[in-house]
Design a protein around this nucleic acid. Structure first.
Ligand SMILES: [Mn+2]
Ligand SMILES: [Mn+2]
Ligand SMILES: [Mn+2]
Ligand SMILES: [Mn+2]
Lengths: 231, 231
DNA sequence: ATCTATTTTTAGATTTGTCTAAATTTAATT
DNA sequence: AATTAAATTTAGACAAATCTAAAAATAGAT
């Protein structure tokens, strides 16, 4: 490889692994100058702390994270921007899979993990356009704009809504396959209107009314559903 | 990694590099039991012959190629099937980029080189369906079916057509960016009807009539355009 | 302030894919 | 059949990303 290419590779081209680390650090809160520990990253990525240390040094060398030995890492501005661009791609591809290829919301994540690493600015811009600039992915997570802005939502966990309040289900906190399948089976979907009828002190379970029908759901379910409260 | 996963990885999961080697060997004719030399593969892939030797051993170990030291490699049945599935993905993605995302035919190859390695059978089946089961990619190359069948075409190079014969332009042999841009600039596109008016002995150039207009094209151009002869 | 459990880093090894340089084999030419 | 040129393989090295085991640093508890 030529000298110029070595330079480009070292400072600009991101490997798949580097991108995955940045994304994980962001999701663990490392975008807000907060230091994320080696162990936390290792656990999240199902790898070993020693591997995380190695990558922390490399990303620090590239100016993508601030790394202090024994203290952890946080993302630099460039690191945040890069993480957001990967998250943007991940979520846009998830929308594509659901809207254009009839994937269910529990099938998209694994494939999006691969697609998010495709390098082509035009591809992602045109995909955004094809999907008519969606604001949220199939799990209700916000899609960052091209220039890395996040549209924060005024949303609450269903478990924190007071009795008799009402709102629209807008997202899931846990987007694991089992949870999503459970929601499907119980006909709980984004967009549904939910009213909290009653809370049970004993186990924190809720009695709710959803699109006319009454049902009881456990605290664990309610604590993983985001609701936009009606004003 | 567990023992089972090590086994799966060794015998079933293809790396990007392995897939690229199989594809190259296929394109060099290694699907017809013909032995492809180490040097030919190295040149095509812009790598070194010693690297090709290493990979030949690995692919042979996996049962994807037949490799005889100093003689070269050819694809096994499994190797052909695998190569065709990658080529199928490459070409379907190219159609997607042109038909759904407004890419031009000279922009798609590079991105398809990345997309062809995405692993999801459902993704490619659904993509095929979204595109309404296209038979050819934007350069006129046939798209193998899901079960690895190729629809061969009755096509000729324009340079081999006799004077006064006529046909429809259905593909390009060279699909490099400069050639494709040249064709665009001269309004030569797939689907155009071309009639050979005259051939110049001196430089083998052709006088043709295309959609009413007359023009002269060099032998090099004519030798890279596939035409389906009208019966 | 010292001890101790936990976290984190280092050192050294491994796998994949690549390279260079040297050795070997094949194929062409006398 | 011997010589030579070209093709191919081997040996050894390297970078990336990972691991294990041992060493070092930190933080919590006395
Ligand atoms: Mn996801
Ligand atoms: Mn990923
Ligand atoms: Mn192509
Ligand atoms: Mn490729």
């Amino acid at each position: 490889m030529s000298n110029k290419n070595v330079f480009l590779k070292k400072y600009f081209l991101m490997t798949r692994s580097e991108e995955n680390y940045l994304k994980t650090i962001f999701h663990l809160g490392g975008g807000d100058a907060k230091s994320i520990t080696t162990n936390a990253i290792a656990e999240q990525m199902e790898t070993k702390p020693s591997s995380v240390t190695d990558m922390a040094k490399k990303l620090s060398e590239k100016g993508l994270v601030d790394y202090v030995r024994y203290q952890g890492v946080s993302l630099t501005d460039v690191g945040v921007k890069t993480a957001l661009s990967i998250i943007r791609k991940h979520r846009l591809w998830e929308v594509f899979l659901v809207k254009k290829l009839d994937f269910t919301w529990d099938e998209v994540h694994e494939v999006a993990e691969q697609l998010e690493h495709i390098k082509s600015e035009k591809l992602i811009d045109k995909l955004d356009e094809l999907l008519e600039f969606p604001k949220h992915d199939p799990h209700g997570d916000p899609i960052p704009t091209k220039d890395g802005k996040f549209q924060e939502r005024d949303e609450k966990l269903l478990s924190e809504m007071p009795i008799n309040s009402q709102g629209v289900c807008v997202g899931v906190k846990d987007s694991s396959v089992p949870f999503l399948k459970f929601l499907d089976k119980n006909k709980i979907a984004l967009g549904n209107t939910i009213k909290v009828l009653d809370k049970e002190d004993f186990d924190n379970s809720l009695r709710i009314q959803m699109d006319g029908k009454e049902m009881r759901i456990s605290h664990q379910i309610a604590a993983n559903l985001y609701v936009k409260k009606n004003d």
